[in-house]
Nucleic acid binder design. Structure first.
Length: 667
DNA sequence: ATAGGGTTAG
């Protein structure tokens, strides 16, 4: 009978249409979605059992196609107040679509509109987690409290999903203790309960408590941390204890299913704590295990590549980024610019920067600091001016970059002007980094007195880097009087920081203050654990090699020392005399020289000379400032071997070609 | 047919 066909719809057709609807996930599919929607209206009578699920699918599809008004329209077509449960689901789905699009205010508005609609449409245990999350995202504690008390009245607070979103809401609204109360009151906790609590403490800065909860969790007999656990603890691991990082790594290792986010979080923990070798190593392991990186992975691992100057790894990551079609992506392009600059390839950094379709202050800061680190202060200043010309507002870090560029290139007046404009014109309160740049700039330009006065008039307490910059300047300009003041301040301020040890003890030794020399030594012996050992790092193939002073543990040790002997012998004939002054006073003259000759930079250079073919540039990354002796030796070695040597130290990059360094020996 | 925790650049 022809007339009855429309009342007995062919469910097969409807199913096919619903599959089509579900496949519409992008704005480009909107036309077919509308067509399918129209057909469905003809096919499915509102009372048909498939009509409710169809509505849900339509709302989801319209939301996925960024057609939120259409999704709303589907919801509004639900007018009869008697289909309570089905209506609630539709509301839930649309609220979910809104939260997914970060439209939290809209989600909360829609939630508020549920009640007057009709007695049968109640928010349920699916709705509350969504709206509590929106409260958290919009930091609406008032509404969050209201909703949580409504939840309690309904007895829904026993639901884990609800409890977890309540924990998160309280923490993100600045009430971590209330979050903890909810967590404490939970009868049955699962891994997400713990994650919610860890993250709750971590994201409000209660790092120790976050770590304590993490430890308590992993110590439970049958706990199984997941990717969310690693990601939750991440913000609390900014300045983490080594043993805590080991604990996190252990949890990571024991995870049977390593989701991408856990790799990314583990990488970030290494990267944020200066474990650059481990970060790059973990990335290499990802590649080996066939884990496909995403843009977060590469954004996280590029800075460690820069730190280590692992140019090949960095270039390979750039290839991955291009191959996966991740560009254009401002974040990644900024990270790439910085990585290349940090690896000593100003050309590649500039290429990335030039190829960008949009640039923000971070992009400009990256390229300015790139030129600055290479000693090209003029270019850095020109780029800074160009940025200003484009109407971009420099921030605190942009000023650090340009001030550092001025100090690296000795642009005294320009630097002073920028410092003044930062405070007067841009109303940026200078921080310790800015003061350090200025002291460095003044001091190394020879204005020691002015640098000292500058410190004295600083509105904030000068830290060890500020005094350290002054001490450096005093060493360069042999200013004993101010140097001793700086040394005293440093020793008082950070007796445990042995990075300044050599500078300090030299200053005291030159002044004949042997008792103070002894104090420095003792302080170091007592608290010597904090000593940052000088290390030089090089990349060979996909391996990272680390060298320490006098290191003999490398398998090629024998050859390296032979090569070094040969090199030092040859450059000695060219006027190289070990600068004994840079080392400790009470070591025998001959020992001093031997000490200098086995500095990690020299070992690293010899190692690469042995293992790379002629003409290959030598890249070495060092975690301290390189000493004058190594700098001179590197220049001469570059001449006799005809190799480019790119030596990055903790402060800047030395690009050495045929005996000349880009720093112009001003460093 | 729907819900919780969680990552990236100077």
């Amino acid at each position: 009978m022809p007339g009855s066909r429309s009342h007995l719809p062919a469910t097969g057709d409807a199913d096919a249409l619903l599959r089509l609807v579900a496949a519409c996930r992008a704005p480009a599919h909107l036309a077919s979605l509308r067509a399918a929607h129209a057909r469905l209206l003809l096919l499915l009578h509102p009372s048909h059992p498939s009509a409710a699920p169809a509505r849900v699918k339509l709302i989801q599809a319209y939301a996925a196609c960024s057609a939120l008004p259409a999704a709303h329209a589907v919801l509004n077509s639900l007018c009869s107040p008697d289909r309570g449960a089905a209506a609630t689901i539709c509301f839930n789905v649309l609220i979910r679509a809104l939260t997914a699009a970060s439209l939290h205010r809209d989600a909360l508005r829609l939630f508020a509109s549920m009640r007057p609609r009709g007695s049968a449409c109640f928010p349920d245990h699916y709705t509350y987690p969504l709206v509590l999350k929106s409260c958290a995202a919009s930091k609406d504690l008032q509404l969050g409290l209201q909703i949580h008390s409504a939840v309690a009245k309904l007895g829904l607070d026993a639901n884990r999903y609800v409890a977890h979103s309540a924990i998160s809401m309280y923490a993100r609204c600045g009430c971590p203790e209330d979050a903890h109360r909810v967590f404490d009151g939970m009868q049955n906790r699962d891994v997400v309960s713990w994650n919610a609590m860890i993250s709750g403490f971590a994201r409000v800065g209660l790092f120790e408590r976050a770590v304590d909860v993490f430890k308590e969790f992993v110590a439970l007999p049958y706990s199984i941390p997941d990717a969310g656990t690693i990601a939750s603890i991440l913000p609390a691991m900014g300045n983490a204890k080594a043993e805590d990082i080991v604990l996190v790594r252990k949890a990571f290792n024991e995870m049977q299913l390593k989701e991408l986010i856990s790799w990314n979080a583990m990488l970030a923990i290494y990267a944020n704590n200066g474990y650059h070798v481990k970060a790059v190593g973990l990335f290499l392991k990802m590649e080996k295990d066939g884990v496909e990186p995403d843009s977060m992975t590469v954004a996280t691992v590029l800075p460690p590549c820069g730190e280590l100057s692992t140019f090949s790894a960095g270039k390979r990551i750039h290839e991955i980024i291009k191959k996966k079609g991740m560009l254009p992506n401002l974040l990644l392009e900024n990270a790439l610019t910085d990585m290349y600059a940090s690896c000593g390839s100003l050309k590649d950094a500039r290429n990335v920067f030039d190829s960008m379709s949009a640039r923000d202050v971070i992009s400009w800061t990256s390229i300015i600091s790139a030129y600055g680190k290479h000693g090209h202060g003029r270019e850095a200043v020109d780029l800074f001016e160009k940025m200003l010309g484009l109407g971009l507002e420099p921030d605190s870090i942009a000023f650090v970059a340009v001030l550092a560029a001025c100090s690296h290139a000795g642009l005294l007046d320009v630097g002073k002007r920028y410092f003044d404009s930062m405070t007067c014109r841009y109303h940026i309160t200078p921080k310790a980094e800015h003061y350090t740049c200025m002291v460095d700039l003044l001091g190394r330009a020879g204005c020691i007195g002015e640098a000292y006065d500058f410190i004295m008039t600083m509105p904030i307490e000068p830290n060890e880097r500020v005094w350290g910059a002054l001490l450096q300047a005093c060493r360069i300009h042999s200013n004993m009087d101010v140097g001793l003041v700086a040394a005293d301040s440093l020793f008082r301020l950070v007796p445990e920081q042995t990075g300044y040890y050599v500078l300090l003890s030299n200053m005291y030794a030159r002044a004949g203050r042997w008792a103070d020399v002894t104090s420095v030594r003792n302080a170091m012996a007592n608290k010597g654990i904090k000593k940052l050992p000088g290390a030089s790092i090089v990349e060979l193939g996909d391996q990272v090699h680390t060298f320490h002073i006098g290191d003999r543990c490398h398998p090629q040790s024998e050859m390296i020392y032979q090569k070094l002997d040969e090199l030092l012998g040859r450059i000695r004939g060219m006027g190289y005399n070990p600068e004994v002054d840079a080392t400790l006073h009470d070591v025998e003259e001959e020992d001093k020289e031997r000490h200098l000759s086995v500095h990690s930079e020299k070992l690293a250079i010899a190692f690469l000379l042995i293992n790379t073919s002629p003409g290959t540039p030598i890249r070495v990354a060092m975690n301290l400032r390189t000493c004058g002796d190594c700098h001179l030796a590197a220049k001469l070695i570059s001449t006799i071997t005809s190799r480019e040597i790119i030596l990055k130290d903790s402060n800047r990059i030395h690009h050495i070609v045929q005996g000349g360094c880009s720093c112009g020996d001003y460093w």
